[in-house]
Design a protein around this nucleic acid. Structure first.
Lengths: 127, 127
DNA sequence: CGGAATCCCAGAGGATACTG
DNA sequence: CAGTATCCTCTGGGATTCCG
């Protein structure tokens, strides 16, 4: 029996699905890099992102391709060449990235808040 | 020895720190709910978010408080009463949430892309 | 009411090595 | 080059119980 008070997660927070889609650990750097530098190969992507392993990069690229945010083009050459690019749908996320970039200067305030929090006596805070 | 080709993750993707801050699994629903319904108590938050456990809610609230995105107000009454609210800094994220909400209709395209991907023969895709 | 304490687990992700 | 294949780690989070 479901209770009538039960809450649908998607209704509780309508933006959660978009967050799951775009802002997982590695999807953000991948989409951002593709959006910034355009069509590029597997290794270029890997080098630009810096610390990602081939396995994880493949996994996330496959997922993004399935979600229609990224395209994959295989060139049957020797040596093989594969190019990834952001799709039109993926590119429609660009304003989002801009909003994030615009907010990022506030990170200094976050840093300050953390230092203040850590420096403040915990005693009078926790009843 | 650091190689000169080494890449700073934050430089590789400048928006990654903001994503870490705001778009973890539960921080989004918490911030969204506080931003939407305003100041409220622990249990109200828990009921609105729906499936979050008290432990996790406490953890994330503490983190958000430390980051300066959420405020916590303790009222020494019987029974005790605690109210959470979004801080001005947290409220400055509202445009971001709006951008996300505006993009969310595109989720239908994502769904379509998935179905197409799954329905397409894998054979001719994977060389 | 608003947590804290404890135990537990899946699954994302890292390290390493190998292949068409 | 563009991945696969294993193996392993580790943390976010779930379930449960108890406390002031």
């Amino acid at each position: 029996m479901k209770e009538t008070t039960e809450i649908d997660p998607a209704q509780a927070c309508p933006i959660a699905p978009v967050v799951d889609l775009v802002f997982s650990r590695w999807t953000t750097p991948i989409l951002w890099t593709l959006n910034e530098y355009g069509r590029q190969r597997f290794v270029e992507l890997q080098r630009r992102i810096g610390t990602i392993t081939p396995k994880v990069l493949t996994q996330r690229l496959r997922q993004l391709e399935r979600d229609g945010l990224v395209t994959r083009t295989y060139h049957a050459e020797v040596p093989p060449r594969v190019e990834y690019d952001i799709s039109p749908l993926g590119r429609s996320l660009a304003p989002l990235f801009h909003s994030l970039a615009e907010w990022s200067p506030n990170l200094t305030k976050v840093q300050a808040a953390r230092e203040h929090f850590d420096a403040t006596e915990p005693a009078h805070r926790r009843p």
